[in-house]
Amino acid sequence: MDQPANTVNYFITGYVIIFGAMLAYLVSLVVRWHHLRQDEALLTQLEAEKTNPQAGEAKPHQPV
């Protein structure tokens, strides 16, 4: 066994998977963060309208 076995393909696959998985997790964190941020903004807005109907956003929203 003078020459090492040619396993470059496995090596590359391995590192693609490692970085791919980490990247996928990062993306999932970012996506979830943005979704929650949107929810938060929407809910605070709704709450503001509920407590003080006139102080709502500029859009034409009629309190029931």
Binding site: M1, P4, T7, V8, Y10, F11
Partner: peptide, 25 residues
């Protein structure tokens, strides 16, 4: 660490490049 795995760590004599998966594994 990635740089070291790719360029600094030696190639293992029998298994070849795949052995380098070992570090992050």
């Amino acid at each position: 660490a990635t740089g070291m795995v790719f360029f600094y760590a030696p190639l293992e004599r029998v298994m070849g490049a795949v052995q380098k998966v070992f570090y992050f594994h």
